[in-house]
Design a protein around this nucleic acid. Structure first.
Length: 193
DNA sequence: CCCTGATTCGC
DNA sequence: GCGAATCAGG
C-alpha cells in the first residue's frame, strides 16, 4: 500500500481529529500504526519536541485543545471519498438508552448482559447515553478483546451497533458501560417483592 | 498487560 | 520515502 493522495488526506484528517495512530491505521487499512506514525512525522505533523534517544512527549498527544479549524476548499475534487461502507444511520434518535435494549444477539461472543429493567443509577445512565454519542458504533465483527461490547439499539433494526470504546481493563465494557453493567448491589437492592 | 507516540535505520 | 524495530511513557 502506498500513500496515495487520498490516503494521505484521510491520514491528515484523522490525525487532526486526534485519532490515535493505531485507530487511523485500522481505518486506512493495509498499514500498521508504525507506518502511520512514520508518515505523520514525514509530513511534518507531530508535535514539537526534540528529545533525542527516545521517548518524547509524555502527554502531548493526549491533550488536544481545539485545533479544528480548516475548511478544506478543494477545487474540483471529490468531497468525501469514503471507502468505508458504513451504513450511516443516524436519522432518528434511536436513542432508547439502555432501558429497552433487546438482547438477541447472534450467538458467538461474549454476550452482554442486560441492565435489567431495574432502576439503575441515574448518573450511570446519563453517563452511558452521553458516551454512546461518542461510541465507535462497531459491528460484531469489528469487536476485539479490548473494545466495549455493549450493544446499543435494536438488533432487529439498522439502529444497532456495539459501543466499541476502549474497555476498562479486564472488563468487556468501557467505563461507562461497566457502570451500568456491574451495579454494586447497592442500587439493585431488592425491590421488595 | 494494555495502550500511546517518537525515533532510528535498513531497505 | 517507507515502516518494522525499538524506545520511552502512561
Amino acid at each position: 500500500m502506498s500513500w496515495s493522495d487520498e490516503r494521505v488526506e484521510l491520514l491528515k484528517k484523522l490525525w487532526g481529529e486526534g485519532q490515535s495512530a493505531s485507530q487511523i491505521a485500522k481505518e486506512l487499512g493495509g498499514v500498521t500504526r508504525n507506518a502511520v506514525i512514520g508518515k505523520v512525522h514525514r509530513l511534518g505533523l507531530s508535535n514539537r519536541n526534540g528529545s533525542g534517544g527516545g521517548a518524547a512527549s509524555e502527554s502531548a498527544a493526549k491533550a488536544k485543545p481545539a485545533p479544528k479549524a480548516e475548511a478544506k476548499a478543494k477545487p474540483a475534487a471529490k468531497p468525501a471519498p469514503k471507502p468505508d461502507p458504513k451504513p450511516a444511520a443516524e436519522e432518528k434518535p434511536a436513542a432508547a438508552p439502555v432501558s429497552r435494549v433487546k438482547q438477541i444477539i447472534p450467538a458467538g461472543q461474549p454476550l452482554p448482559p442486560q441492565p435489567s429493567a431495574n432502576e439503575i443509577d441515574p448518573e450511570a445512565l446519563a453517563k452511558v447515553s452521553e458516551i454512546e454519542k461518542k461510541a465507535k458504533k462497531l459491528t460484531l465483527m469489528e469487536l476485539t478483546e479490548r473494545t466495549c461490547k455493549w450493544p446499543v439499539g435494536d438488533p432487529a433494526t439498522e439502529d444497532f451497533w456495539f459501543c466499541g470504546l476502549p474497555v476498562q481493563s479486564g472488563k468487556p465494557y468501557c467505563e461507562a458501560h461497566v457502570g451500568v453493567a456491574f451495579q454494586p448491589m447497592s442500587s439493585r437492592r431488592d425491590r421488595k417483592r
